[in-house]
Design a protein around this nucleic acid. Sequence first.
DNA 1: TGATTATATTCAATTATATGCATATACTAA
DNA 2: TTAGTATATGCATATAATTGAATATAATCA
Lengths: 136, 136
Amino acid sequence: MDFIEIFKALGDENRIRILNLLIRGELCVCEIETVLDMTQSNASRHLNKLKTSGIITSEKKSQWVYYRINNNFIEENNLLYEYIKNKMDEKTQLKRDIERLKKFKEGNFTCEHLRNDKSQVFKYLQCQCDNTRNEN
Amino acid sequence: MDFIEIFKALGDENRIRILNLLIRGELCVCEIETVLDMTQSNASRHLNKLKTSGIITSEKKSQWVYYRINNNFIEENNLLYEYIKNKMDEKTQLKRDIERLKKFKEGNFTCEHLRNDKSQVFKYLQCQCDNTRNEN
DNA sequence: TGATTATATTCAATTATATGCATATACTAA
DNA sequence: TTAGTATATGCATATAATTGAATATAATCA
């Protein structure tokens, strides 16, 4: 966990956007790519970079891979972690991403929803007017 | 002063080496390039990147340009600044650089010495056996 | 087993970064 | 003004990073 490598990993907007989500809790790749609207391969690659530098870890649960912040990273880089969280609060894009994450969570979407009809979930996340949704 | 740009600027070993020196006090370009043994153009460009991201500032004094840590940066990024200083203590290369800086300072070298005979100063900095030096 | 699906990886193209050399610019001093 | 010097910058090049599309891999389920 070289701190220069950590800076390299953090010096990219897409990876900061991913981290911004993971701070709120673990997520699998298909959730991240949907909320952030990035391609699957791109999400996977950025996740790998964050993982290689020790910032996040992954755990395979059946066919899905869940990513989360590495507790070890938080312990060993606490000042940096607090700094990032503070600075994230000021960024418009990151606030918008959190709104989309909230919508996704409040909509009770799951990986299965994404499998069955990703574009419907995506449409729902884009809708500005309605923040509630019927179950199912 | 976007924090992602700051991370980009910090994600390079040469720039961290420069910063490591500047934490000990201001220095001009010719001093930095000598202590770190990098080309003049390379030192200048890295300094510019650090300056553009708001981490350092410069002041022209007669023909020399002195660089120092930007106080504003320290104030607005205090957690990050403390983090960097802590992590720097663990890096071998950075400790070696500080030894060379100390030798340079204790040798009472100036920019004029570098102008007159840079290679002599350089040889002195490389010498492991002798940490003292006659005046002049 | 075979079809489907989630994630990772390869390939190719594009873009960004780092660097040395040569030169431009800005300043000093004779 | 001219010569000399410190720093910045343009140019060319090498290396690294980013990305989408296609494919490989690993797991699930019928």
